[in-house]
Design a binder for these strands. Structure first.
Lengths: 244, 244
DNA sequence: GAGTGGTCTAGACCACCCG
DNA sequence: GGGTGGTCTAGACCACTCG
């Protein structure tokens, strides 16, 4: 999280305040210095201070009360699981051992519902990357992803050993094409495991499955990836934050 | 969405631009006038225009490209389902008939996991509101909610006919106590229906259930409500947006 | 009244992208 | 070079909250 000395002042100030909060220098519920005081302390104008505070408010770390001041939030909501984070990193951070196996890498014709999600015509070529992800050696998620072939001409030739095994890696390939990964829209349902999925996840047909249809978008709204996700109901949970 | 004539200029401008996008006056992918042009058009400074645009960017409706301009997003992500919205309103908007029945309204001692979620000591009094929600006459969700009793002293005496039947209504009671509802954190899992839940939802034991533990927070991070939600797997799906 | 955040100005200079 | 957004200033006045 280091920034070059040339980073904008508002980012430097934001990081400085973030450190004070994380170090417990500013405790939950405690009042921050006023915007005027912060402006004087950092030697900037008040508008610049406000720009820094806006970021921290957006992250849910602080909140403002008109006429009273700015305060550190009481509960630091664990936003980690509600943000777009790497499966592998998340796993390791919680002290588990992630794993993955590439089951399919192929070019196919898009099925209608996949074409619709990706803004393609039915039958247009897509690249399929299917992986089985595991935690501590036991399978937990079957991930069946599709990307528009014309946007990722080099994907089929990419290193098979790591491809699809680390989302960060796929993201790097995506961003190397000039896209900026911005968000994922996921539709979640509860289902019962079918025969094929049950076999992959080493559960019984009829066991509960948290099924998600995920679409990955770039910041201009272009759909970049569609994926069917089958998560073991007994070992997988997803925490989301719905903001007003 | 009307604002008093005294609404801040940046809100007026934001709403004016929103209207142009929603009316198709500005089409997806199309470039907005430059910030200088908008400032001249609305007779404000550029900083005020940027304040308006920031809101629309935050809502995912437009995006900026340094050196190029500001553009309307290509896919207007249906954020409706990823925002905190009223069950009843959502339902009606999609052309369905929502319903609800209050099953329990009582004061109890908080169970340990509920106390922990609400920042209480185990055994502290909570108010339980359990409702069965339906769509087009068929039950879809069993909602078992708990609120700290000391924060809502008047809740038990509230009008039973409408209480818990419209989330907006409960929110109004919550906000009448001086809280500002800010977000919900929900942990989702796939489960199989047990006997009791199956009976309520008119499904068979062993049918799939999308189970969620919801905690409602005010903007200062105070937990205000805990709820167990049991959603019929065959008729309920939840769409979430994970931002980077 | 004093202190706080909410809004707004009228500029400035910089970095980025295009032709 | 010309147009765009990114950052930043040094003020101003208003609205809200508290004592």
């Amino acid at each position: 999280m280091l920034h070059a000395p040339s980073a904008p002042r508002y980012i430097q100030i934001r990081e400085a305040l973030l450190r004070r909060i994380q170090d417990g220098d500013l405790k939950p519920g405690e009042k921050l210095p006023s915007e005027d005081q912060l402006a004087a302390e950092f030697g900037v104008s008040r508008m610049t201070v406000r720009r820094s505070l806006d970021d921290l408010i957006n992250a849910g770390l602080i909140y403002r009360r008109h006429g009273l001041g700015t305060f550190v939030s009481k509960t630091t909501i664990e936003r980690d699981h509600s943000r777009l984070t790497d499966f592998f990193e998340n796993c390791r951070l919680s002290g588990h051992v992630p794993g993955a196996r590439l089951l399919h890498k192929e070019q196919k014709d898009a099925l209608p519902h996949i074409a619709r999600a990706l803004g393609l015509q039915p039958g247009e070529p897509v690249i399929r990357l299917a992986t089985l992800r595991s935690v501590d050696g036991a399978p937990i998620t079957y991930h069946d992803a599709y990307l528009p072939a014309y946007r990722f001409p080099d994907l089929l030739e990419a290193e098979p050993a790591t491809l699809g095994l680390d989302r960060q890696h796929v993201w790097q390939l995506i961003e190397a094409q000039g896209y900026t990964v911005a968000n994922v829209v996921e539709k979640l349902e509860a289902q019962l495991a079918g025969k094929d999925v049950a076999r992959l996840l080493k559960i019984k047909p009829g066991d509960p499955i948290l099924y998600g249809q995920r679409v990955l978008y770039s910041d201009d709204g272009t759909p970049l990836k569609y994926a069917d996700c089958y998560n073991r109901g007994d070992r997988f949970s997803l925490t989301v934050v719905l903001a007003r």
